[in-house]
Design a protein around this nucleic acid. Sequence first.
DNA 1: AAGATATATCGACTTTTCCCGATATCCCCA
DNA 2: TGGGGATATCGGGAAAAGTCGATATATCTT
Lengths: 99, 99
Amino acid sequence: MDQVDIFKALSNKTRLQILNWLKQPQENFPEQVEAGFSEGVCVGQIQKKAGLTQSTVSEYLATLQRAGLVKSTRVGQWTYYKRNEEAFEALSDIVKSNI
Amino acid sequence: MDQVDIFKALSNKTRLQILNWLKQPQENFPEQVEAGFSEGVCVGQIQKKAGLTQSTVSEYLATLQRAGLVKSTRVGQWTYYKRNEEAFEALSDIVKSNI
DNA sequence: AAGATATATCGACTTTTCCCGATATCCCCA
DNA sequence: TGGGGATATCGGGAAAAGTCGATATATCTT
């Protein structure tokens, strides 16, 4: 994945919002209690909050994952997404000294 | 200028290259000697190196400037562009802690 | 004042992105 | 083992971005 694709993934208001929501899953996704948050938040919760269709949100999450910005875990019928913090640190360093 | 527009400005291989070239103007634009580099590099030099048309490069530089990533100075018939390093530091911080 | 040069803007066309509905796939459970 | 729920993928129409050639604007020179 090259830098252009990372920046493209970040070039969308909804995708930026999703990343931001995933910083505080407990606050932003109160409905998801039983499953805990260690694996992340499932697609349906994110979709509901984003107010876009399921297919759009699924595609957005795939885009973020291809860029390396989130990681996913499948548990039963659910896919949980969470931030990949290492990627943000690496990107921050790139912006600071390699662009 | 919001974050989305900054990331959009960075979502293009040529624009990333231009930003990178402007980190070392002396090395990357050896033809531009007489004018010095304190004000930056003029559009024509950047265009020649990018290998795209004048209108495209001019538009790219305008995009980078709207995003705050470069600054321009008009001197006679030339417009000199240089990096706005403060913007990169600010963006690095945003990526590290605000996205 | 006129021509030359540098840059910006405009109009058009192509490619990409956005976002949807429909459908397929995967997994659970009665 | 079949129905239902969660997610992924596909196909498409609308909007935006990429890129060009042509033209406009600004400035320098003579």
